[in-house]
Design a protein around this nucleic acid. Structure first.
Lengths: 218, 218
DNA sequence: GTCTATAGCAAGATAGAC
DNA sequence: GTCTATCTTGCTATAGAC
C-alpha cells in the first residue's frame, strides 16, 4: 500500500470518527466525511464501499484501546473474578466515548455476512486476538478448572464478553451503570462455575458444554 | 378498525412480505411495495411510518406461527428437555421461509431504541407473550427446581431463546442444521441445570442468578 | 378518516472522464 | 486515484377526491 493511499485512507477514517462523535452515525453524511477529509465523495467510496464500512476504523481503535486498558488493570490480580471483572470494566471504559453511535455500529456488525460481524471469516484475526486476551485473563489467575473445559474456556469467556456488549448496546443508563452492574453480578457466577467444574456432579455438565463448543466449531 | 383500513393494511404487509422474500429487505423499495399492494406510496406511509415498521407485520406473523406450531409439538411431553426442544425447533421451522431477509430484519430489531427491539418498551406485550409461552413449557413439565429460581425461569428460558435466534441469524448451513444442533446440545444442559438447582452446592449459584435477573429488572 | 397523484428533498451509492 | 455528474430510494409535502 503506497503512502498516498494510506494517508488518504487515514484522512477519511479520521474525519469519519470525528463526525461520528460529533453528530452520531446517522447524523453524519458521506458528503460531510468527504468534505472534512478534503476529498470527493466518489473518492471516499473508492476506499470504503459503503458508509457501514467506515466503522472498521472505529472497531480497530476500540480493540486496541481495550487491550491497552485491560492488561494493566488486571496486572497484580490472581483471582479469576477480579481479572475478568477488570477486563470487562476496561471494555466499558474504552467504549464509553462512542456510546452515542456504537449502538448503530453494533447493529451493523451484527448483520450476518457483514465483514465486521464477530462470526464472519473476515473477522477471524480480530476474533483470535479477543480470545487471546481471555487466555491471558485465565493464564494469570490461579484457577484449576476441569482440564477439558479449560481448553474451551477462553472462547467461552469471549462469548460472555459478547453478551455483555450486547447488553451495553441497549443500556441507556448514565455511565452504563446497568452494564457495570451486570458485570459485577455475572463475574462471580462465572468464576463460581469454573471453580465448581471439578465437582463430580458437575462433570457431565462440563462435558456437555465442551462437546457443544466443539460440535459447533466444525 | 374498519374493514377497509384492515384490508389495505393487510395488502401492504402482504406485498411487503412477498417482496422481502423475493428480493430481500434492501432490494425492496417502498415504491415497489406500494405498487404491488395497489396503493400509492403516500398511502403506504400513512399506515407504516417507515420501511422498518413494515417488518412488524412479519414479526407478528412469526410469533403467531411459532405459538401455533409449538403448542401441539410439546403436547403430550412432560420432560422439560423435550418440551423445550420442541418449542425451539418449532421456532426454527416457523422462521425458515424468512431466512433470506430475517438476518437483516433482526439487525434492525437489534438496534437500541427501535420499537421492534425485544427490550424496547413498545415490545412489552410481544415480549410478555413470548415469556408466557415458556411459562407453559414449564407448567406442563414435571420439574421441581429451586422455588426462587422457578419464578425467574420463564424469563431465563426466553433469554435462551433469544440467544438461539441470534445464532440462527448467522447460521448459513442448509435447513439451519447448525442451529438445530445447537438446540439439541443446549437443551440437555439447561434441563440438567434446572434439575440440579436444588442441590445444596448449587443453591448459592441459583441465588446469584435470581438476584442478577431481579437487579436488572428494576 | 382514507386515499391518489405528484413533486421534491436528502443522502447513499455509481459511472465514466481524466 | 481522483473528480464531477448523475442515479436511486427512503421519506416528506401538498393539494385534492370521496
Amino acid at each position: 500500500m503506497t503512502t498516498a493511499r494510506r494517508s488518504t485512507r487515514d484522512a477519511i477514517v479520521g474525519a469519519a470518527l470525528e463526525l461520528f462523535r460529533e453528530r452520531g452515525f446517522d447524523g453524519t453524511t458521506m458528503r460531510a466525511v468527504a468534505d472534512r477529509a478534503g476529498v470527493s465523495v466518489g473518492n471516499a467510496y473508492y476506499y470504503f464501499s459503503s458508509k457501514d464500512e467506515l466503522v472498521q476504523g472505529f472497531y480497530d481503535q476500540l480493540v486496541a484501546e481495550h487491550r491497552a486498558l485491560a492488561l494493566p488493570a488486571m496486572a497484580g490480580h490472581t483471582d479469576l473474578g477480579e481479572r475478568l471483572g477488570a477486563t470487562l470494566h476496561a471494555w466499558i471504559t474504552a467504549a464509553e466515548p462512542y456510546r452515542e453511535f456504537a449502538g448503530r455500529f453494533f447493529a451493523v456488525a451484527a448483520q450476518p455476512g457483514n465483514p465486521l460481524s464477530p462470526f464472519s471469516p473476515d473477522a477471524g484475526p480480530a476474533r483470535a486476538a479477543a480470545v487471546e486476551l481471555y487466555q491471558e485473563v485465565l493464564a494469570g489467575s490461579r484457577v484449576d478448572p476441569d482440564p477439558e473445559l479449560a481448553r474451551e474456556l477462553p472462547e467461552l469467556l469471549w462469548l460472555q464478553h459478547l453478551g455483555i456488549v450486547l447488553f451495553w448496546v441497549h443500556d441507556r443508563s448514565p455511565h452504563a451503570a446497568r452494564t457495570r452492574l451486570l458485570v459485577d453480578r455475572t463475574v462471580p457466577i462465572v468464576a463460581r462455575l469454573v471453580r465448581l467444574s471439578r465437582l463430580p456432579v458437575l462433570r457431565p455438565l462440563g462435558r456437555q458444554v465442551v462437546d457443544l463448543v466443539r460440535a459447533l466449531r466444525e
